[in-house]
Amino acid sequence: MNSKRIRILISFLLVVILALFFGFTTESFFSASNLSQLLRDAAYVGTIALGMCCVIISGNIDLSAGGMACFAGCICARLALAGMPAIVCILGAMAIGAIMGFINSLLVNRLHIAPFVATLAAGFVYSGLGLIFTFRENGRIVNKPVMNPGFTSIAGKVGIIYYCVIVWIILTLIIYFVQLRTRFGMHTYALGSHETSAKMSGVKAIRVKTINYVICGVMCGIAAAFTVAYNNTATASLGNAMEFQAIAACVVGGVVMSGGSGNAIGALLGSLFMAMLSNGMLKYGINVDWQKMFQGALIIVATAGDAQFARIMNARMRARNS
């Protein structure tokens, strides 16, 4: 069993252990309504984490994901309020996301700004734009319901599964396939593992990075559209700290921050873990601020743990080779 499989297995076991823990210690964790709610939360984080994992694997980072979700969501709500059909609203959010992702890639590739500063600053711009585009009455921000039955119907569900969960899982499988079975996916891993040697072997670095950033933007757009439909409104706090949660999900799922390892399934497991954690903590009556503390600690522990894991695996490989 190679180290990648072991890492995915660890993430999977973490999810199972957490599920069993909350399942046995709290009531109604495994009830249909709770599971359906949990999966919906996971889908929101998970769709963004999916885009984030693409960017991280290519050796970059996108701290503007929350801002992108906020702006795309506000545009989507405006389109919905204008009476557009659902498909136009979703495509609009995706297009806005794609444009923002493309702008991020321009900042990183063409202006050569360090990815985390470029996307952090771009995140300020996007969430600021989202704030400008929120609904107002007499200059005050109001929660205006989006009266558009066609659009809000995408927040519906089949049985206990919301549509967004289905979309999330399909997208995960597509990205997983792209990552493991296509040339573009391979180039992404090569670029993330060692940029210089990847470039020297003919990987078109700028193109690969650009596509990954655009994927991240599109994912944020999709996540935002479904959330706007579910909440029936768009507020400036829509994407608040989502990039943080998405990064946490990626890290728990074994997507290493330095790039070049991890995959979409890991991001899916990580998102499930994050959603379960907040769901279970709510059942324990732990409020949102403590959850933020837990998530902060979790990122540190997971990144530190990953570094140790890589060291152990390297030592094992060396021992086997000698």
Binding site: I61, L63, F244, M257, W290, M293, G296, I300, T303, A307
Partner: peptide, 18 residues
């Protein structure tokens, strides 16, 4: 532990806030 500084401080930002 050679962790990237911005990830660590992004995490502690929320930790301290909480």
């Amino acid at each position: 532990l050679n962790l990237p500084a911005f990830v660590v401080t992004l995490a502690t930002q929320y930790l301290i806030y909480g």
